[in-house]
Computed example of a mutant assay.
Amino acid sequence: MSGHKTKALDGPFLLAFGTGSTWRKENQGALNNNLIEIVKDALQSGYRHLDTAELYNTENEVGEAIKRSGISPSDLYIIAKAFTTSNIRAAFDRTLRNLGVDYVDLYVLHHPYFAKSEEQLQAAWVEIEDIFDSGKVGSIGVSNFTKAHVETILKTARIKPAANQIELNPYLQRVELQQYHKDHGIQTFAFSPLSPIVRAKPGPLDDVLETIAQKHGVSTAVVLIRWALQQGIAVVTTSTQNERMKDHLLAQKVSLTEEEIALISEVGSEKHFRGRWNDIFAAEDRS
């Protein structure tokens, strides 16, 4: 265990720049120089947390962006995710090579839906635990897990997941799952935090977000990100535009009132929107 250099997930590390589905490449062919420059811009704008995944085939670009930025990986919080489940250790070693690092801060099992039985899911978690034992990761976690999936791995786990990265925003608050995370010391990560203004308009929050944004002199995107951060939720966001990258970082500086947080939650609960895994969840399932 002496190899672990676990960083506290706070301060600038709570807001991650994602290299997810927006960037996905179909193969590991030639480097995408545009993506490299975008990630480098994000780092030079002030992001110190990068979220990547085997599935997106962009690990090489992320690694090259880190090199070009001149920022040491030790000064970053790096999340990587395993999509391969047949030999997770081989996938992890490949991820390290692709990123050009010898350590990541959080290694995550990307989703639970490959598993045809509880035993299969538990076996995959054992492989993740073995990677933790190698000392090459700071912590281990899961993504897209429901409460039932987390409960399944906790039945046999030696090491509980440190985090669960899930789709979460005011139109998909997943209150019960969030509380379960708190009760078990699991960090909630939110992806698709901007859905109310990007994918789910029009909606009941439109005017509320505009009013709060104008009051604080920020964008509605900043308000949505801050709504999550201020509740202790880590956030993964992204943009191709440098101006928006910098704008999103303002969420680390603004502070909403408790009344504003509560209002966003209350009005947000009037609408349900899920952008991912709609083939898995029933139409009105908010879990």
Rank of each mutant, 00 (worst) to 15 (best):
T152D: 01
H216S: 03
S72A: 11
T19Y: 03
P12K: 04
E119P: 09
R174G: 08
Q230M: 01
P12R: 14
S287N: 13
E129L: 06
K7I: 08
A65V: 11
R226I: 03
V108N: 05
R48P: 05
E127Q: 15
D10A: 12
K182G: 09
Y113T: 12
G141A: 00
A8K: 15
P161R: 14
E266D: 10
D207T: 15
A157M: 11
H110F: 00
I233K: 11
K147W: 03
D183G: 03
R274A: 04
D247E: 04
D75F: 08
N60F: 12
G203A: 10
D41W: 05
P204Y: 04
L168K: 14
A251L: 14
N242R: 15
D93K: 14
I71Q: 08
G29D: 02
T85E: 02
K67G: 10
Y103T: 03
D10E: 13
Q122M: 09
E26D: 01
I88V: 11
Q120F: 06
A65S: 09
L229A: 01
E64L: 04
Y56I: 00
I166D: 00
D279N: 13
E260P: 03
T238F: 05
H181G: 06
V101F: 03
H110V: 00
V150P: 02
Y180D: 00
N278G: 14
K215L: 04
A16D: 02
T146H: 10
A16K: 08
M1K: 15
I261V: 13
E151V: 12
V236R: 10
E284Q: 12
P112N: 03
K116P: 08
A90V: 11
L249Q: 09
R226V: 00
L50H: 06
F92S: 02
F132D: 06
Q122T: 11
G18I: 13
R158M: 05
H181I: 02
S2Y: 12
I159N: 04
I128E: 04
V104R: 11
P170D: 02
I264W: 04
D206L: 10
E151P: 07
H4T: 15
I36C: 09
L43D: 08
I140C: 04
V126R: 15
W277L: 10
A30C: 12
I197V: 13
D105A: 03
I280S: 05
L76T: 08
L172P: 12
G3W: 12
H216T: 09
T95G: 03
E26Y: 04
A82Q: 05
G185N: 07
I66G: 01
K81W: 03
E176G: 04
